[in-house]
Amino acid sequence: MLTLSRSLRPLLSLLLATLLVACSSTPAPVTGPTPAGHYRVKAGDTLYRIARANRQSVSNLVRWNGLKSADAIEVGQLLRVSPPDGSRPSSGSANTTPRPTPTPTPSSSPAATPILLWPGDGALLYRYDGQRRKGIGIAATSGSPVKAAAAGKVVYTGDGIRSYGLLLIIKHSNGLLTTYAHNAKLLVKEGQQVEAGQTIAQAGSTGTDRIMIHFEVRRDGKAVDPLPWLPER
């Protein structure tokens, strides 16, 4: 196993500490009455789904609620879904585009979300909820290929977090980290550069009770819903 560079050690320490906290605690959702023209975020919601249900655009909801990005919502959060003071929205939304346009600079705009590749071909077992589940589960068979969601550098391999089993983390040039958990066998090493779609591991059940791929996307160290980053299927 290669030794991590000094510049990557703080990043990996922070990420692993975040994963440990996620495994051991679940914040209580905020509850209370929902005023007219507002919506309280539920587990599994995305800003796109909320916008579509209320016939608004994602950009309007981001602006009206002062969000840093389209991913910056949490369970229990109260969102304004109608124009402030009854004014007309600046753009229509009933026909908002379901997937943002790919771009090489995703951090420049909330809507500039690159499309990643699915790490496995199996059915979706569970969704990201931002609390107990920081990623999605993908069904797999023993030894089936686990593929890199995008080109990048392997920055961690190991089993230091029991509930994640044999874990692999890739750092991408756009500032994203992707994690692949519950592997049976790793096929790449720390420090290795990988290509999008490259087989990086074999699926297994380490750290869980069934064969599967647990997949996470992290931006600036914070877990975000992977589904808006993946092509629909």
Rank of each mutant, 00 (worst) to 15 (best):
D209E: 11
S205E: 06
G207C: 09
G204C: 08
F215T: 02
S205K: 15
I138S: 07
R99C: 09
A201D: 02
I136W: 06
R80I: 03
S90N: 10
I138C: 07
Q193S: 15
D85E: 10
K147D: 09
A111K: 06
S205F: 01
Q193P: 02
P145C: 09
S108K: 14
H214P: 10
Y128M: 01
I138E: 09
W118N: 05
P145H: 10
A151G: 10
R218Y: 06
T157H: 00
S93Y: 12
G92T: 08
E216K: 09
L187S: 00
T179R: 02
Q192L: 03
T179P: 03
G120N: 13
N95G: 12
P98E: 14
G204K: 11
K147S: 11
G152C: 04
R88N: 12
R218N: 02
T157Y: 00
A94M: 09
H214E: 07
A223L: 07
P100I: 02
P84W: 10
V224K: 00
S93I: 07
A112I: 00
Q202W: 06
I169L: 05
H214F: 14
L117S: 13
A223G: 04
Q192H: 03
P102C: 13
A223P: 01
L166C: 05
K153Q: 14
I136V: 15
R133K: 11
A112F: 09
I161C: 01
P119L: 04
G160M: 10
N183A: 14
R127Q: 13
G137Q: 05
R99K: 12
L116W: 00
P98F: 14
D220M: 13
L125I: 13
T97E: 13
V154T: 02
A184I: 05
P102K: 09
E216P: 04
A181I: 05
L176F: 08
Y180V: 09
I213R: 04
T103G: 10
A151P: 10
A151W: 02
R88M: 08
P98C: 11
E216G: 10
T157F: 00
Y126K: 05
A140G: 14
G175K: 06
Y128H: 06
A223Y: 01
A148W: 03
V81W: 01
I161Q: 03
P106M: 04
T199G: 02
S144F: 03
G120M: 04
G86Y: 01
P110K: 05
N174W: 06
S93C: 15
W118F: 08
A148F: 06
R162S: 12
T206V: 07
D85F: 15
R132L: 09
R162Q: 14
T206I: 08
L117M: 08
G207A: 04
S142G: 10
G207E: 04
T105D: 15
L125Q: 14
S93A: 14
A111P: 05
Q198E: 15
A223M: 08
R132E: 13
P84F: 10
G175S: 11
L124E: 08
S205T: 02
G130V: 01
I211E: 00
P98G: 12
L167W: 07
P226T: 13
P84S: 11
I200P: 01
E216S: 08
R99P: 07
T113L: 15
E195F: 04
V188G: 05
T179W: 00
L176K: 04
S144V: 02
D209F: 07
K171Q: 14
